[in-house]
Amino acid sequence: MRRIGDAPHVRRLLISAALLLSALFLLLPLIAIFAQAFSQGVAVFWSNVSNHFTLHAIGLTLMIALLTIPVCLVFGVALAWLVTRFSFPGRRVLQTLIDIPFAVSPVVAGLIYLLLYGRNGWIGSWLDTHDIQLMFAWPGILMVTIFVTCPFVARELIPLMQAQGSREEEAAVTLGASGWTTFWRVTLPNIRWALLYGIILTNARAVGEFGAVSVVSGAIRGQTNTLPLHLEQLYQDYNAVGAFASAALLALIALLSLAAKAGLEWRASRREAF
């Protein structure tokens, strides 16, 4: 039986439109990043990447991502367990609250942290008298990065855990397994791929966050410059090739994330087929 849009000319038209538009708006920018980065040869690219300030920015960016992931992981799993395994008043409110970081502009996210923990804020001024500086230093970068990335793991886990239901865990507990044993042996194997996908998303965002970080970092070269801030500085200094060298590194991480996502989805669809 023929379905809507199955006529050959409609089909051809829609597929070509989709391919053309995607090539123009998605593929072309991707190609441009690498074309610009290597526009003066591999040697120039390499010297831009292995430059002291770039290496420092890479190190800081990776450190922030590595510290962010476990925090988001613990929070995401706890929240998903809470809202999918128990019924209590305020459950929906919690689920709405975790979406806040998606709606808040990154600049506003940076600003609210700066106001609270900066020298003029009520926590910041107390910290200042104890010689603790969070803003314009790496702890501030870490704090805003956690703010912008914290929904990802929870958002991946909640629909899955809701769909799976709690029958398996209830069986395990009824048969005498302890809470942790149940979690490690029953829950975790069921959610590991969604968990991994949540980590990939968290990492991609943590590595690339710009707006929030640029408000709280101070962007001191060799100290508080993450890779996205570093490429902005190079770009503003008219060092386009240098900027795109850093951009290419970030784009590579993005491509690896996409590949990992496609791999996980392929795995999931194969498992569903059985």
Binding site: A18, L19, A251
Partner: peptide
């Protein structure tokens, strides 16, 4: 042909850091 690749490409704007998107679009 290329459908899976196209599907994966759809997520690029979320995976790509915004500053990278910014300088790339400005340059293009």
């Amino acid at each position: 042909p290329g459908k899976r690749l196209l599907d994966a490409l759809m997520d690029l704007p979320f995976a790509l850091p915004t500053a990278v998107a910014g300088i790339t679009l400005a340059t293009l």
